[in-house]
Computed example of a mutant assay.
Amino acid sequence: MKELSAAEQRFIESMGLYFERQGSTRISGRIHGLLMLADEPLSLQQIARVLKVSAASVSTNIRAIMSIGLVDPVSVPGDRQHYYVVNSDGWESRLRTAEDSVKAFVRLCQEALSAPQLANRQHLRDAADFCDFYLAEMAGIAERWRASRRARPSPRTPKASKGRTA
């Protein structure tokens, strides 16, 4: 990968800070930001060199962002190194995770509201009502997103094959 421009560096650092504010690690955000800008799959060593961090830190953090569906491993024919790319469907995965979280929260509120001594607690009712509203509004977003993506011209594909390497 070529030297990063000032704009690319700012974006990568901003992604790191964003991830950190969301409860993840700054390095995870920096890795994801770098992969979003990469024109080709990057190895652990390439990521470490560009971000000026240890390969061990990249390895640990890449597993974390793979577990939430934002990054995929790919193989490069004839090369035994592990390479990584952004999972273009990762945003849908994050949406499903957020929906699952809201559903779990609304279940807690509804269970509490089913207890006679808590049935009239306005804060619980407001939270449950908001969550129901939120979930109703979110219904169909993923399908509309997929339809929107199908209507767009196909982006160029990375020069690697998806899947775990041995």
Results as ranks from 00 to 15, higher is better:
60 T>D: 10
58 V>W: 04
85 V>C: 14
141 I>K: 08
159 K>G: 12
90 G>E: 06
129 D>I: 01
156 R>K: 12
21 R>Q: 14
110 Q>F: 00
150 R>N: 06
137 E>C: 13
84 Y>K: 02
158 P>W: 09
70 L>R: 10
72 D>R: 14
120 N>R: 14
80 R>H: 11
99 E>I: 02
53 V>H: 06
82 H>E: 13
159 K>Y: 05
60 T>F: 08
57 S>K: 13
11 F>E: 09
34 L>N: 03
20 E>C: 03
148 S>W: 05
156 R>A: 12
131 C>I: 00
89 D>S: 12
134 Y>A: 15
31 I>F: 02
134 Y>G: 00
22 Q>H: 11
130 F>I: 11
99 E>K: 00
64 A>T: 10
47 I>V: 15
93 S>Y: 05
98 A>H: 03
127 A>N: 05
27 I>L: 13
90 G>M: 06
36 M>H: 07
45 Q>L: 06
148 S>H: 13
50 V>Y: 00
11 F>W: 11
111 E>P: 00
74 V>E: 05
104 A>P: 00
10 R>M: 10
158 P>I: 03
138 M>L: 12
3 E>W: 05
134 Y>M: 01
123 H>Y: 09
9 Q>G: 01
110 Q>E: 15
37 L>N: 03
105 F>P: 01
20 E>V: 04
45 Q>S: 14
32 H>C: 07
14 S>K: 11
